[in-house]
Design a protein around this nucleic acid. Structure first.
Length: 272
DNA sequence: CTTCTTGTTACTGA
DNA sequence: ATCAGTAACAAGAA
């Protein structure tokens, strides 16, 4: 699943490839992958240029040169954004954006939960403002995190996954962060002591930075904007490691349990 | 064949 | 108000 590190990797790849390129045509192969009417979608994109790319949490927003419109993209579980000079269309290709230099941007999505949506500046800000703080933002400090955690009575896992509280963390990184912070995912966040909050804060930054450095995690469909797999997969300590020996204590096997409605992996020995 | 998984929203009930 | 739980969406894997 594309989470913050995967979406950030794609964003950086695309910044190197599509900024200021003129769009000459747009193919919509699956109508329900586009939230606008196909005609409106094509009309706004054609002969326009991508001026800037923003990311908050798992959302991307392309800003255009003409008319102050934004293209919001959410990849959900299996969405891919691949930039290529070749024809790489496959049966999961939903949208193709053609540029003047004959290169193309492909939106592929096996399960078709992802979407593209053109909105005006005001609506884009509404969508971004509704999201919780992005952990790579300067405003994400220990004090800020502490205030969030103290105000919630729910489990650590559910707070980490709630995009309206902190945006960008999904099931993979939630478990990896809890493991790194040595905290059980079902702990109530308002009961964490200052040392534990500090560990959590450091682990959030550390794990996400490291995952971005390794260009994300590929365990099923995620690829970067060049179609290549992410390398963080081999650094995972708990995600999909159930029944394997814990990488830290080498003594207990990783427990798999449903917490906050999601499959959750942790070491019952190392995480307190 | 059935069941599970995944991100997000919507809904229900406590 | 706040939280937990679940259904819904699609499609592939087990």
């Amino acid at each position: 699943m594309p989470e913050l590190p995967e979406v950030e990797t794609i964003k950086r790849d695309l910044e190197n490839n599509v900024i200021r390129k003129t769009i000459t045509s747009v193919q919509v192969l699956k109508n329900n992958s586009v939230k606008n009417s196909v005609q409106t979608f094509k009309n706004i994109l054609r002969f326009n240029q991508i001026k800037n790319i923003e990311r908050k949490g798992k959302y991307l927003a392309f800003e255009f040169k003409k008319d102050h419109n934004f293209l919001i993209i959410h990849l959900r579980m299996t969405g891919q954004l691949i930039y290529s000079k070749k024809d790489i269309q496959n049966k999961h290709t939903r949208v193709i954006i053609h540029f003047k230099d004959h290169s193309k941007l492909y939106f592929n999505d096996i399960r078709r939960f992802g979407y593209l949506q053109i909105v005006n500046k005001k609506d884009k800000e509404l969508i971004f403002d509704k999201l919780g703080i992005d952990p790579t933002d300067k405003g994400f400090t220990y004090e800020f995190l502490n205030t969030i955690l103290k105000s919630k009575k729910s489990s650590l896992k559910s707070v980490l996954l709630n995009q309206n509280i902190i945006s960008g963390i999904g099931n993979i990184y939630a478990d990896e962060i809890c493991f790194d912070a040595k905290l059980k995912p079902y702990r109530k966040t308002n009961a964490l002591n200052p040392k534990e909050v500090l560990r959590l804060f450091n682990s959030i930054r550390k794990i996400l930075d490291l995952a971005i450095k390794h260009r994300g995690t590929s365990f099923s469909d995620y690829v970067d904007a060049n179609g290549k797999m992410g390398n963080f997969t081999k650094h995972l300590k708990v995600y999909k490691k159930e029944r394997e020996r814990c990488a830290n204590c080498n003594n207990y096997s990783i427990t798999k349990l449903k917490i906050a409605g999601r499959m959750t992996r942790f070491c019952k020995n190392c995480q307190r």
